[in-house]
């Protein structure tokens, strides 16, 4: 069965976060034709029916001999990975250019829920940190079954964000994480690259692996607005700017790309995986990026 990628907008419309996370993760896993991310653990987990096209490496031939049916053995990974999901809840994350698309924060929330489910499914300990210019809430990392509900509960109650100040809050979080592990930052990184890099470097310094999901709205990339408009800053509502987007588009794109280039360069320098995504990109890509990282860590 081949399924078309489901857009973030369609998924967001489903409403319940637990269902969404499950749908995203299960759909993602089933859609992988060749799944290199299973079977690297030595602990048997369950039997599962073979689907056409799946490799025959893990087919249990004994079961086949007895039942004349193809089953494959699925192993649960044994791990001591502690992953902490850092979700940026600043006001800038509340931006969504189109009602048909989720805001960056909604996208981040769904992504965080999906990652949490995927991590827990692989018996990793998962924690959550919510912040804007300060920490807004946290769930300590655990690998218990109930942990997913704790995380989803916090994600469901995301507080209204304020101005972004990534540097200080990242430092604060870095200090609070007790053990080395995986840090997954979901943010638009709308702060000075120097401050962001400094914060991330702090994680690296404390031995954490870091994946950064930079979530942006497509309009932030191309400034594709028609007609003159007064732009209001979401983080500082008193700041407005009157502008003809068509006149400023080229220069804006140039400046924005330069900023993104700085972010990329800083992440590369600190050996941080940077996953750039937009709110119209299916979650598969983000999940795939995580699994790649996870595989390298194992």
């Amino acid at each position: 069965m081949i399924t078309a990628p489901v857009s973030p907008a369609e998924i967001a419309a489903l409403g319940r976060l637990d269902l969404i996370a499950r749908l995203v993760v299960e759909g993602f896993l089933v859609g992988l034709h060749r799944s290199p991310y299973h079977g690297f653990s030595s602990e048997f987990a369950e039997y599962r029916a073979c689907f056409p096209g799946e490799p025959v490496t893990h087919v249990d031939w004994r079961v086949y001999a007895k039942s004349d049916r193809l089953y494959r053995k699925v192993f649960s990974e044994e791990t001591n990975l502690r992953a902490t999901l850092l979700v940026d809840c600043s006001a800038s994350m509340g931006y969504g250019s189109d009602a048909a698309r989720p805001t960056k924060l909604a996208y981040a929330r769904l992504l965080a829920a999906s990652l949490a489910r995927l991590l827990l499914r692989q018996n990793d300990a998962v924690g959550l940190e919510l912040f804007d210019s300060r920490r807004l809430g946290s769930v300590p990392a655990r690998a218990v079954r109930r942990q997913l509900f704790e995380i989803l509960k916090h994600l469901d109650e995301l507080p209204a964000g304020r101005e972004t100040a990534l540097g200080p809050v990242l430092h604060e979080v870095a200090e609070r994480l007790p053990r080395r592990g995986l840090v997954v930052l979901i943010s638009d990184l709308m702060d000075a690259p120097v401050d962001v890099t400094a914060g991330l470097r702090h994680f690296r310094h404390r031995g954490h692996e870091v994946i950064v999901f930079q979530v942006l709205d497509p309009r932030e990339l191309d400034l594709d607005f028609k007609g003159e408009a007064r732009f209001r800053d979401l983080e500082r509502p008193d700041r407005t700017l009157r502008l003809e987007p068509a006149h400023a588009r080229a220069a804006y794109r140039e400046r924005f790309e330069a900023w993104r280039g700085e972010v990329r360069q800083a992440c590369r320098r600190e050996r941080i995986d940077l996953v750039e995504t937009t709110t119209d990109t299916p979650f598969d890509r983000a999940l795939l990026a995580y699994l790649s990282k996870r595989r390298r860590l194992s």
Binding site: Y95, D217, E220, R232, T240, L241, H247, R255
Partner: peptide
């Protein structure tokens, strides 16, 4: 003129500062 909420005006301000006079 319509009002558009935008995530961060930092880049727009930089652009406008550079071009506003000419514009």
């Amino acid at each position: 003129v319509r009002e558009i909420a935008f995530s961060d005006l930092r880049f727009l301000e930089e652009v406008k500062a550079r071009r506003s006079r000419a514009l």
